[in-house]
């Protein structure tokens, strides 16, 4: 094999290695984002549940708005999780 072709193979291998390394890093970041998204959905469920408990403990006219905000927060968390899944 000529030196030029050997050099080309080495460079190609380096490029492939860099690409595979970058791909692996992005894959790892994606996995972390998915896990974080899942935990955030769990947190959203807890917030919604506790808002309902708080609303039963102290009843004021503004609480339906707060509970609605909690539900909205949960839906946004679900949307973020789905977004991370299809990243």
């Amino acid at each position: 094999m000529s030196s030029t072709s050997q050099l080309g193979l080495i460079l190609g291998d380096s490029t492939n290695l860099a690409a595979s390394t970058e791909g692996a890093a992005l894959f790892l970041i994606k996995i972390l984002l998915i896990v974080a998204g899942f935990l955030y959905v769990c947190f959203g469920v807890i917030v919604t549940r506790q808002t309902a408990v708080m609303k039963k403990t102290l009843i004021t006219p503004i609480e339906p708005a707060i509970q609605l905000l909690g539900l909205l927060h949960l839906f946004v968390a679900l949307g973020i999780f789905v977004f991370f899944l299809f990243l």
């Binding site: 039963k56 403990t57 102290l58 009843i59 004021t60 006219p61």
Partner: peptide, 8 residues
């Protein structure tokens, strides 16, 4: 003297 404020 809050209006419409209750607790469980």
């Amino acid at each position: 003297k809050p209006h419409k404020v209750f607790f469980d």
